[in-house]
Nucleic acid binder design. Structure first.
Lengths: 192, 192
DNA sequence: CACATAAACGGAACCGGACTCACCTTATGG
DNA sequence: CCATAAGGTGAGTCCGGTTCCGTTTATGTG
């Protein structure tokens, strides 16, 4: 019932284009990209942007939500195609990439945090659950120690997001991630 | 050498008025008070505001810095006039009051955090030191347990600031503070 | 394959709010 | 008391998000 009409083909295209343009902009570090820019680089006019999103912030929020959704869907996929330990590694790297977007958006999002929007609490919880799933799988397989919980690991990773955005930060973040992975492997029954 | 000219009398008055007007506004919860309002309620025109502060953010930042300064000067005073334990109690209450301002300002400050400004790291460190001083005094007097550090306590208090601003929050924050104080007293040699 | 029509689009205009500037006022020291 | 430079003023500019309405286009129907 939340689908009164299936949404016209070009409309869906444009909506998508807008979201990806916004995502792009944030990834590029253009923290406060103007609606005009976003619209233009999506090949549409501002009016169109506002047809799809109530407000600038609404668009940003949507990008973020999408990001979280993608991320939370990942563990399932990863566990299908990889050993738990490798799945965990890949997921953490995804998380870091996500942090890159989140970082770019964080400033913009802070105004949202002030309002009632549940994107953040939501995101944190779902993220924690995703990590828990991976850790459990690893622990069951005996390649990851069992005394670390999802939320704990998330918090450990949280420090990464607190890092100032400077040129080399992404690589550095990845190194930290690897370090954490080594730590997690350490103490597991079948240590590699 | 950072005082080329002593600053004219009325100028100093106005500058002061602006700072206190801004502080007032933030305390009242008017998170994004317009420069016009601030200027008017300080009894001056916007031009004057901009004569004294490079930008709106600069004014906000200054208020915040002042707030932190006041706060960090407090322990000295309090320890002179009160027993360590009472000094600690009073300081924590000051901190909460400060959080009221900080809260109102936090949204505005977030944009500053994104820039290079060191107000925050600075503030955190200095706050931690201030708390450490009080805790040490209390521990020396034997009325406060000795296994808690300033930064730790600050972090514990940090949770208070994360609280959503709702009508009753100030009282609630004060209750939490009292709870913490009881906790700190607990386990001290000369427990009351 | 028209045609009708509702959906979607474009972009100029609007509006609110931070910031500037050319001119006026006043403190200050001689 | 005057000269003068520091200080104050506020209408105006600029900028960026948001609105609104005339135009274009996808879609389903005869």
């Amino acid at each position: 019932m939340p689908s009164p009409r299936p949404l016209r083909a070009d409309a869906r295209r444009n909506r998508e284009a807008l979201l990806s343009a916004a995502r792009e902009a944030f990834l590029a570090g253009d923290t406060d990209a103007h609606v005009e820019e976003i619209a233009r680089s999506a090949g549409v006019a501002v009016g169109t942007l506002y047809r799809h999103f109530e407000t600038r912030e609404a668009l940003i929020e949507e990008v973020y939500r999408k990001e979280v959704d993608d991320l939370c869907a990942a563990p399932e996929q990863l566990l299908e195609h990889h050993a738990p330990q490798e799945a965990l590694r890949r997921f953490l790297l995804l998380l870091v990439d996500h942090a890159a977007v989140g970082k770019g958006m964080s400033v913009a999002l802070e105004s949202i945090m002030a309002s009632d929007s549940p994107v953040f609490d939501d995101a944190r919880i779902r993220m924690g659950d995703a990590l828990t799933r991976l850790l459990k799988a690893g622990s069951a397989a005996g390649t990851v120690r069992g005394d670390v919980t999802g939320p704990t690991l998330l918090r450990a990773l949280g420090g990464i997001c607190a890092m100032r955005v400077s040129d080399g930060w992404l690589d550095e973040a990845r190194q930290i991630t690897n370090l954490l992975l080594d730590g997690l492997r350490h103490g597991a029954p079948h240590a590699t």
